[in-house]
Write a protein that binds this DNA or RNA. Sequence first.
DNA 1: CTTGACACAGAACAGGCGTTCGGTTATCAT
DNA 2: ATGATAACCGAACGCCTGTTCTGTGTCAAG
Lengths: 227, 227
Amino acid sequence: MMMMVRKSKGLGERHQKILEFIASYQREYKHPPSIREIGEHCKISSTSVVNYYLDQLEKEGLLERDRKISRGMRLVGNNNPLGDLLRVPVLGVIQAGEPIPIPPSDFNPFTAEDTVDIAASLMPSKEKGKDLFALQVQGDSMIDAMINDGDIVVLKPAQEARNGEMVAVWLNDRNETTLKYFYKEKDGYRLQPANPAYKPILLKKNEPLDIKGKVVMVIRKVDRLAV
Amino acid sequence: MMMMVRKSKGLGERHQKILEFIASYQREYKHPPSIREIGEHCKISSTSVVNYYLDQLEKEGLLERDRKISRGMRLVGNNNPLGDLLRVPVLGVIQAGEPIPIPPSDFNPFTAEDTVDIAASLMPSKEKGKDLFALQVQGDSMIDAMINDGDIVVLKPAQEARNGEMVAVWLNDRNETTLKYFYKEKDGYRLQPANPAYKPILLKKNEPLDIKGKVVMVIRKVDRLAV
DNA sequence: CTTGACACAGAACAGGCGTTCGGTTATCAT
DNA sequence: ATGATAACCGAACGCCTGTTCTGTGTCAAG
């Protein structure tokens, strides 16, 4: 009888096939396959052999298994078609002259109507708390922050900032919220546009500084037509 | 004995609790809980009652179940912490004076070293093919396209474009690839920067127009410090 | 040729887990 | 009061599924 012998130390043909099957199965059924299902689709007649391969894939670090649990396996890292999403509520619209809404502490993302999903892998682990919120930019008011009409800005609530962070700040004299890089200087604060073609705003120490949040991400969907 | 009676037709406290438990369990263990595990954490002593609630949640359209399959349940839509990701390969860097790389047809996302995950829900369904690719912007060369140093641009391969679409186009005379809105005009083409503070580029009909791809998304992570 | 590692097959075991059914308590309209 | 209905409980049934054990054919090293 013909036997497959793995020449190289790496992955054999069957390892690859199993990996691909798990990924495609999970894409289709939204849950992992059972050992027997893997066997059927990969022409492996014994569950013990599938188990044997899964053990190897686990040793290779390509798979994680929850023993004793039905379908308790998942592809590790980049092979997993299903991944963690952060559900970020879109609280409203930001535009010149409008204050930005702040999420109430009892905010429940389950009942939020408008949310955007962000792959958790895109976020630094520090920001993965559930207090993130998003705003949709309306108009050209954020153009000096390199942010276009329609962009989605993801923010983390904050009342203060460190040098170089982009913050949403309420400008009392202009009666608007805007996005700028924040710098503390010896005689006050400098709010620097992201686009060097625009001039910074200088605030004296005695002027009120009302930071609403830090920008952690900007997302622009370009599927619509521009003007 | 005290019984919970659902006054409103909507979700009761227990429905909510079960929903939240499934989400948190799935976030932690990467697979759905069993009926008995739900019961334990939600103080429901009978598996039949959990089943009873799951049926209701399914009828409400908040849950999908694969009967007969262990842990065969998933939260529907926005409640599901695990979702479809698009694995977009980052093929390289785009900067003034550099041509952008084009993905070879035999490109295998499984072996790609550098990828970004995009929540599938962020993409219009049309673009969900696997031929998307991404580029990292280096330098300020794309500043007129409202794209900053470090931004990630997601592109769909294309050789032509319709009016109003943002394209990556090779400018032969300038010896660089750039991102502009595309417009066809009667005597040629107009390549319009996204920022109205910059002037458009006008191309005559006889000048070569070399479109590399259409921009479908721009992602800016603002966790780093700016200059 | 012997030995051992490897790649399998098949069967049996045991626990996990969804399902179902009979029964109980509380609320409410009639 | 009374029946209907919704919200439970507990136990039993039985399939699903991971695990384990015994055995076999292949191949390369000693």
